[in-house]
Design a protein around this nucleic acid. Structure first.
Lengths: 248, 248
DNA sequence: CGAAGGCTTTGATGTAAATCAAGATCAGGA
DNA sequence: TCCTGATCTTGATTTACATCAAAGCCTTCG
């Protein structure tokens, strides 16, 4: 089984601490498809909508490059981001005909799409696919629950610090280096998108960014470029439970 | 395959609108186990802790009767509920050694447990198990995302109305009748548990319950027994997006 | 170059929910 | 029966964040 071996070698390209998942997107995509003809690529520009909630969705997909968001909207326009899709993340649901969320490209984006019917067939005939998808979905569920704690119980400052930590970790992972000491990266989100992620207004996001800057927790160069001189300090500000796993 | 047929008959016992899932708990449990010796039942009293976050967890389980909660806690004691486990719901993660959340019985509870190692083996040898588990996990992820919208963007009054709607629907499902017109049920949660679910304080929960009562949206008999004279009215108060699926 | 339109910051003010503080209600046990 | 403690309600006050408003900063496009 050289194909199988190949697969495992690919997966050792790195493990993402944010979502606890292998991040080699191409590999993921190729593994899931197998059959060339059911898979195709689509590109989107930053800001473009991939699909609207309620639209017919005859494909499932995974992110190859770029960042996409899932958002829900109330009738009066209040918006909440409910998913942040990074390379290798999966979107769409086998066995559902319409999209449940708005999917938007926040950066230029390439997605690898699979026609739904043949993908569903493959799920049945190829057990490995369902098992892998389960693993990914469980990771997303854990991330969603962490996010719920943030939304329900953290202060604005803690929310911002948490988000910066998440982005910093993701970025460090893509560059294959641990987020210790000084970290630097570009924010992939506008202030409004950050607000939609965190359940805040864009003004509060802006104010808290300024406050963290004033207090030396972060350095800002322009509006988007962030440097974190002391990652542990940032994590303190995020107020996270740090004892998980060490008490039993 | 009479065993297989049996299974499908069982699953037609009802579909839960809250989590879009078959609710026949016994059936679920028996299907997942197959081998008698890897499965056992555990009972808990209301208020008892099933497992603490970080504890070693050498089993996975599903709820047979009663209600359990998953909660996360920050160092300073702020608590957020991140999961509400109803009969047939699954808890635990194949491939993880320790619990990620505190699991607590809010009512008297019976769980059907499976030793983890043989369960993991079964996941590999029996494709159907992984597929079923994927389906359930995707449902939970959808519920978590709905919950994120609630936590991030809804007012206290909307949060309470949403929670009452969720409980009413669950309860109606268990009784196999649609939640239209007048509905009546007992709250399975204390005010504090409701607050932990909703990201509020117990005082705010109490005040908003009183307000909904004053406005005739709900009737209260004692602290726990709730009657909803007009379910549509309650859903209006919940402020949910109602156009989902009808615009594309 | 200068106007136009996104983003972003910052300030002034308002308000929903938290916090602090009594009491009320109820169940169980002596 | 009356305590005792848990749970819940209600009131007074504070506060974190939202809202409203204005101005600053880039980019780009005429």
């Amino acid at each position: 089984m050289p194909m199988q071996d190949m697969h495992h070698v690919h997966h050792e390209c790195g493990d993402c601490p944010i979502r606890h998942r292998a991040v080699c997107a191409r590999c993921e995509a190729d593994e899931l498809a197998r059959l060339e003809q059911i898979k195709y690529y689509r590109s989107f520009q930053a800001g473009q909508t991939v699909i609207w909630s309620g639209d017919r969705m005859d494909f499932v997909a995974s992110v190859v490059t770029g960042i996409a968001t899932l958002t829900q909207t109330l009738e009066d326009g209040r918006r909440q981001m409910v998913g942040l899709l990074l390379p290798s993340d999966f979107v769409g649901r086998p066995g559902r005909a319409t999209a449940a969320y708005d999917v938007t490209a926040t950066t230029d984006l390439v997605m690898c799409c699979f026609r739904k019917k043949p993908f569903e067939d493959m799920m049945i005939t190829t057990p490995h696919v369902a098992q892998r998808l389960l693993e990914m979905t469980l990771d997303e569920l854990d991330a969603a629950r962490e996010w719920m704690l943030l939304l329900g119980r953290k202060t604005a400052r803690e929310k911002i610090a948490s988000l910066l930590g998440i982005i910093a970790r993701r970025d460090a992972t893509l560059k294959l280096k641990a987020p210790k000491g000084a970290v630097t990266f570009d924010l992939p989100l506008t202030r409004e998108e950050m607000a939609d992620y965190l359940g805040l207004t864009l003004e509060t996001v802006s104010r808290q960014m300024s406050a963290l800057k004033r207090d030396g927790v972060i350095l800002l160069e322009g509006k988007r470029h962030v440097t974190i001189p002391d990652f542990d300090r940032l994590m303190e500000e995020a107020g996270d439970d740090s004892d998980g796993g060490m008490l039993g």
